[in-house]
Amino acid sequence: METMTTNDAPSPTSGSPRILYRQARARDGADQAEVFHHAVMQGAAAHYSVAEREAWAATMPREGSVWAARQALYTTLMATCDGRCVGFLELDVPKGHVQTLYVWPSLARRGIGSTLLVHAERMLLEHGHGRATVDASRMLAESLLCRGWQDLGTEWVTRGDVRLERRRLEKRLAAIET
């Protein structure tokens, strides 16, 4: 995914932001930390209690170097606007698993996460995978189920002393024309 692609290209009348998609770079780590924190604390507010969101957010420090280090573990696809991360997806290519998907809350529901998933699905197909899996939050699960993902059941994870619900989802992959 070396080539940049666009989504929501600005029009003279709408002033919509121009979103570029690319692979993450180490310098994106600090932005990733902020997107993660705000997506959990604000974006998931309608689906999880404050205690649940605080426990979830505490799983990853708000420090860029930690997120930059994760880029060595996962293929990280990035959505940027004006050079800043506004969404990202971490992909465990060997396992065919979407590890994380987060979008800045004020930009949610504008196709950024969906576009990141399209790029991830294409990458998995190129690596010979016929399916993708994800352990999705309640919020993400709702969206993915409407997009053809299949529900494999509920799982519970403990963060600190707090139990969090997530859904195990799977999607059969097929080549798409873009």
Score class of each variant (00 low, 15 high):
D28N: 07
R159F: 09
E34R: 12
T158R: 10
G43R: 08
H97T: 13
T158V: 14
M139N: 15
E52Y: 13
G87W: 12
D161G: 04
E177T: 13
L125R: 04
L20Q: 09
Q32D: 12
R109V: 00
A108R: 15
R18F: 06
A69W: 07
I176C: 07
H97K: 01
R109Y: 05
H47N: 06
L164P: 01
G29D: 09
C146F: 08
S49I: 02
A57T: 09
A45L: 03
I112V: 01
L117S: 01
L20G: 11
L101H: 02
S137A: 02
W156V: 10
L140F: 02
V157F: 14
P17L: 05
M41T: 02
V40A: 01
H129I: 14
S16T: 15
L125H: 01
P94N: 03
H119C: 11
A108L: 14
V40T: 00
V35K: 05
T76P: 14
I176E: 06
A30F: 13
T154G: 14
H97M: 11
T100I: 03
S137W: 13
R167I: 07
P105N: 05
Y74C: 00
W149V: 10
I112R: 02
T6S: 12
A46H: 04
T76S: 10
V98A: 03
A39S: 10
S106V: 05
S106M: 10
T133C: 08
E34S: 13
S114K: 06
M41Y: 02
D28F: 04
L152M: 11
L101P: 00
F88C: 00
W56T: 04
A58E: 00
T158L: 11
R122N: 10
G111W: 07
W56I: 13
E142H: 06
T115G: 06
A44P: 14
R159E: 08
T115L: 14
T154K: 12
A68W: 02
I112W: 08
A174R: 15
L77M: 07
L152Q: 14
P17S: 02
G43K: 04
V157L: 10
G15D: 08
R122F: 12
V93K: 00
R138Q: 10
R109F: 02
A44L: 13
F36P: 03
R25T: 02
A30M: 07
S65W: 13
V118E: 12
A132W: 00
A55M: 03
Y74I: 01
G87S: 10
T6V: 11
G29Q: 12
R147Y: 11
R25K: 12
V134T: 10
E121V: 09
W104F: 11
T115I: 05
R22P: 06
Q23T: 06
L124S: 00
T115P: 00
A46G: 03
M60K: 15
A39F: 08
E155C: 06
G43L: 03
S14D: 09
A33E: 04
P10Y: 07
Y21W: 03
W67M: 04
L152N: 08
F36G: 01
E2F: 11
R84P: 10
A69Y: 10
A33P: 02
W56H: 04
S16H: 15
Q99W: 06
R172S: 09
A68V: 03
G29P: 09
A55T: 13
E177K: 12
S11V: 14
A33T: 04
A72I: 12
M1H: 12
